[in-house]
């Protein structure tokens, strides 16, 4: 099949960008979306034009490197699927496809479709962990975890950190990303001691990065390749509220 692409091209972080038009010829429906871009890129290089830069690595939907707005939808038309796992059979011959990078102040464009998502790393660094230095913790089976909790924690932990939630959110909010980690760790007994501190710190970092707020449109959950639920956001807010009360109390007690 043949397609017309409109792709955001931007030579560098501070350069001006714009949409460019390309033709993708002889595309097989069995190709993945990124393989289609590979074909376009090879023909660009052959004709002496700079190839389209895009992030990708595992190409099996787990590393979270890839991600682009495809016809205005984060990761394209297939639900629960990262861009690398989207196949061309989701499109028709003669289709026009618009491809843009994730748009967020906190995800500045580096080049073409490549954006800088290090804001996510800083959110995790602010508190998205359990402090358990390498050593000799107790035997793993000394901490029983109800299957329901373990399953729910796993649902939240499935986040691949791709940034589609931010890209799809009309407010450019990173709430789903942050809430997924807060939920994952907050649902487990091991995560309890740091639960409140984690919520306050991660939320503060999320805000400091310049992400927008959550109005529960639900676009993030729809765009998420791992279909993480916005229920996690309610959990985050609850932890945040509880933390507000407790830490305030702590301070009052300490002061007295």
């Amino acid at each position: 099949m043949n397609l017309t692409l409109h792709v955001w091209r931007q030579p560098g972080p501070d350069a001006r960008g714009g949409m460019e038009r390309y033709e993708a010829r002889d595309i097989s429906p069995d190709m993945s979306f990124l393989e289609m871009l590979d074909v376009v890129n090879e023909s660009l290089v052959e004709s002496g034009k700079p190839p389209i830069a895009f992030d990708h690595d595992c190409r099996e939907g787990i590393c979270g490197s890839c991600g682009m707005m495809i016809n205005g939808v984060a990761h394209g038309p297939m639900r629960g699927t990262a861009t690398c796992q989207l196949h061309m059979r989701s499109f028709g011959d003669g289709d026009t496809i618009y491809i843009e990078p994730w748009r967020s102040r906190a995800f500045p464009v580096i080049k073409d479709l490549v954006v800088n998502r290090s804001a996510f790393d800083r959110i995790i660094a602010s508190g998205g962990f359990i402090t358990a230095p390498t050593g000799s913790p107790q035997d793993a089976n000394n901490i029983p975890v109800a299957k329901r909790d373990a399953d729910e924690a796993m649902d939240a932990a499935a986040c691949i950190g791709c940034g589609a939630c931010v890209a799809a959110c009309p407010n450019g909010s990173a709430s789903l990303f942050t809430a997924a980690k807060i939920s994952h760790l907050g649902l487990l007994p091991q995560g309890q001691p740091e639960r409140e501190r984690r919520a306050t710190r991660m939320v503060a970092q999320m805000d400091a990065e310049g992400f927008g707020h959550c109005t529960l449109y639900g676009e993030c959950q729809e765009a998420c390749p791992k279909q993480i639920s916005i229920d996690t956001i309610a959990r985050m807010n609850r932890d945040f509220l509880v933390a507000t009360r407790h830490e305030h109390e702590e301070k009052v007690l300490g002061g007295g």
């Binding site: 016809n71 748009r103 927008g212």
Partner: peptide
Amino acid sequence: QLTMRSRAARPIGYEHREPQVSTLAARTM
């Protein structure tokens, strides 16, 4: 304040954007 924040969070908008699930109610808030 939040609306201003949300605008600042995406200084460059999309050429094409297709909302997927947001309800009329949510979009008209």
